[in-house]
């Protein structure tokens, strides 16, 4: 994937932050290690960043840093943020459709609070049910797969796929990127990047708390 890069120097000019701040945020893991891309230039090594990602990240850090400590901010950027919200709260915030939430609660009646991974399962469940490609029975498969296996992908990119053949449905989590070839007659009904969904969800959650 080709993405536009920005040099460290240009980044500091553009955002007005200092070297000290940048290194501090790196130390606190507010900026992931993978974003520091080293390339040689005429003045020796220079560091580049993926432009859109780093600018968005710095904007968010700058917005939050007056109210939160760096450690608290780091918690929000971690792959699994510290979240627990009650069922009522989810209903009130309208994160998912009320009917979907009710369907979820029928399948998982013991639910009292959602932690981030469960919230993500609910979020994906909602998204797929609303897309119309997935029936409610299949929805339960989604929940099972995510609940059982999502923690194995902590910090890694992964994709959720749902495959159907002759009316029989099965689901899987794949590490991403990967190639998938199926027998003829089988069809990938759903392919969803969970890292993106988690990022979307995180935005929602951060917005509630902010």
């Amino acid at each position: 994937m080709d993405q536009e890069l920005i040099s460290k120097k240009a980044l500091l000019d553009l955002t007005g932050i200092s070297y000290g701040q940048l290194y501090r945020w790196k130390r606190k893991n507010l900026i992931p290690e993978e974003w520091f891309i080293r390339k040689s230039s005429f003045t020796g090594q220079e560091t580049f960043f993926p432009k859109d990602q780093i600018l968005a990240r710095i904007q968010r850090i700058l917005n939050m840093k007056d109210d939160l400590s760096l450690d608290e901010i780091a918690g929000q950027f971690s792959p699994v943020p510290e979240v627990s919200v009650s069922v009522d709260e989810v209903r009130r915030k309208g994160l998912v459709q009320a009917t979907v939430l009710d369907a979820y609660l029928q399948l998982r009646p013991e639910t009292v609070v959602f932690r981030f991974d469960r919230l993500l399962a609910l979020y994906v469940f909602n998204r797929l049910l609303q897309s119309g490609d997935v029936s409610l029975q299949e929805g339960e498969l989604i929940l099972k797969t995510l609940e059982e296996h999502y923690d194995k992908f902590t910090g890694k990119d992964c994709e959720f796929v749902m495959i159907r053949k002759l009316g029989v449905t099965t689901t899987a989590l794949l590490s991403s990127p990967c190639e998938l070839f199926l027998e003829s007659g089988a069809k990938v009904v759903v392919k969803l990047n969970l890292a993106n969904s988690a990022e979307d969800l995180r935005m929602h959650v951060v917005a509630w708390e902010g």
Partner: peptide
């Protein structure tokens, strides 16, 4: 190779690039 910081004071240092305020 590189030294980057807001306030930098160096002695007895051999560096390729020094960047700072």
């Amino acid at each position: 190779d590189t030294v980057e910081g807001d306030d930098i004071r160096l002695e007895s240092t051999q560096a390729k690039v020094v960047r700072g305020n």
